[in-house]
């Protein structure tokens, strides 16, 4: 079955979404990630969506769920690299993803994650 790869970098997991996801693929990712967090005791998750040219309510919901689920499992989720046009569209759509942490790019997101994890 089609899967989006999850990379492990120390105590963090990195997911780079590069394909136009259909809904099942998004659901698989959500499942795989929670599974990996629990197996690896990862402290943080970076989801790089800089290659995504569209985020609709389904993908938005998946991002919010991953963020909420990971928090319960004691891992921080950072969504990084959202394109301006995507951000504007999401706001217009009414999906503001409250409670989801964001950063401009992977490097910045990683810095913030390190700081937050160290502070706990």
């Amino acid at each position: 079955m089609e899967r989006i790869p999850i990379l492990q970098m120390g105590e963090f997991l990195l997911v780079t979404i590069q394909v136009d996801m259909h809904d099942q693929l998004a659901l698989n990712l959500q499942e795989d990630l929670t599974d990996r967090i629990s197996r690896t005791s990862a402290r943080g998750v970076l989801i790089d969506i800089s290659a995504l040219d569209m985020v609709d309510s389904f993908i938005g919901r998946m991002i919010a769920s991953i963020s909420g689920l990971s928090r319960i499992m004691d891992a921080e989720t950072m969504v990084v690299g959202m394109q301006p046009a995507v951000a504007i569209t999401l706001v217009e759509l009414g999906l503001t993803l409250p409670g989801v942490s964001t950063a401009l790019n992977v490097e910045r997101g990683m810095q913030v994650l390190r700081k937050r994890v160290a502070g706990r």
């Binding site: 969504v79 690299g81 959202m82 995507v86 706001v91 950063a103 910045r108």
Partner: peptide, 9 residues
Amino acid sequence: VTAIRLMGA
């Protein structure tokens, strides 16, 4: 402001 936050700034 919301869009800027979504982008991570």
